[in-house]
Amino acid sequence: MPRSITTDDVAHVARLARLQLSQEELTRFTQQLAAVLDHARDVESLDTTGVVPTAHALPLVNVLRDDVVTPSLDRATVLAEAPEVEDHRFRVPKILGDSQ
């Protein structure tokens, strides 16, 4: 099990998750997350060698749909929910950097 979570770790995951934290929040969240992760450490004590992970408690495979067109939404309805629209498109502030 990894070392305890640090404020640097929290700042990093906040950035990955696009959350902005104040200094106070950073300190508080670090303490709280550390407590939860400390508790979660008990999973470490279980011997899981050879145990297959369960992603899903569901024995389904090959759920497929036919390639048949169904109605799309009305554009006006869709765009009515958008914070900003231009030229029938969703407008966003300028993009810096790469789409990855």
């Binding site: 979570i5 997350l33 145990v51 369960t54």
Partner: peptide, 30 residues
């Protein structure tokens, strides 16, 4: 919500996946 998003991001992030998320999925099997 912020706490859980950060907790989950951490559990999935590079270097921690196996120890946290991966191990938890095995516990699920048990």
């Amino acid at each position: 919500v912020k706490r859980r998003i950060m907790l989950g991001t951490y559990a999935l992030s590079a270097g921690y996946y196996d120890a946290y998320y991966g191990q938890a999925q095995k516990v699920r099997t048990l």
